[in-house]
Write a protein that binds this DNA or RNA. Structure first.
Lengths: 137, 137
DNA sequence: GTGGACCTTCCCATGATGGGAAGGTCAAGG
DNA sequence: CCTTGACCTTCCCATCATGGGAAGGTCCAC
């Protein structure tokens, strides 16, 4: 299998496959005489693993750990769970942060006329004016 | 005011102040004879505006638009509100995406023993096994 | 006059991804 | 046999916002 076929089979772009190779995540089975990378089912499986991990928001560094655990038949499920729960915590922290932004922005947008006049509580807030008290909804 | 003092007064690092200048967000009032940047209250105000916008998750590009609207006395509040609501939509999309990840991960982590044994549904999922049915909580 | 705390510019790194150039290879069809 | 197009290769650059650090100039207090 050439890199293009591996890309089709895994859903990972050829560009990224080469990059994952560069950072040590997945190596081709070998090279043909013309220096083309050759992949087999195993490599495609790894690429799909990486893609799935990325879809769940794991960084490539975390993905690498998970990949090593996957390939380590002596792993403990505790080790895997630890990586996962740390990531969940991370996501939840970021979600909470963004929810805070949304809450503030919605309040400001709600207070903004959104009309032809220049007066705007959103800009007032950004400019450092004390925030208008949130109205009970 | 030197850049260090402007940094202290605005909470923006000197490094970032220079960068914001480079991309056209804020220029120093002038330079001293020794080529030091000089800032006044107005520039510090702009820096705080930028910082606040960044804290609300606006990109520097969006921040630039908001800054221009702020400085344009002819602006309409509708224009400002549009930038804000677009950003809210963006945040909500990202939050929903991350919540989906968390939901999946929590389910998988819940199904994972987290013990000394190697058997692990998290890895099974990443490896492409059909997900175990979520148990009603 | 010396040391330390500033300031300047310039280059590099991050993380994950894509764009694109320049050049080699292969297969199919004229 | 030759061309064309679809592959492949490596290499460099860009993104976004931020920080690190080097090399060198400046200023103030002791």
């Amino acid at each position: 299998m050439n890199i293009g076929q591996a890309s089709d089979a895994s859903g990972v772009s050829a560009k990224m496959i080469r990059y994952y190779e560069e950072i040590g995540l997945v190596r081709p089975m070998g090279r043909t005489g013309n220096n083309y990378r050759v992949y087999g089912e195993e490599e495609v499986h790894i690429l799909r693993f990486i893609k799935r991990a990325r879809n769940l928001g794991f960084s490539l560094e975390e993905t690498e750990m998970l990949l090593k655990l996957w390939q380590d038949k002596e792993r403990t499920s505790a080790a895997v769970k630890e990586v996962a729960t740390a990531h969940i915590g991370d996501l939840e922290r970021r979600i909470a942060e963004m929810q805070g932004m949304v809450r503030t922005l919605k309040h400001l947008a709600h207070c903004c006329g959104g009309d032809e006049r220049p007066n705007c509580p959103i800009l007032d807030d950004l400019a450092g004016a004390p925030a208008p008290a949130p109205q009970p909804v």
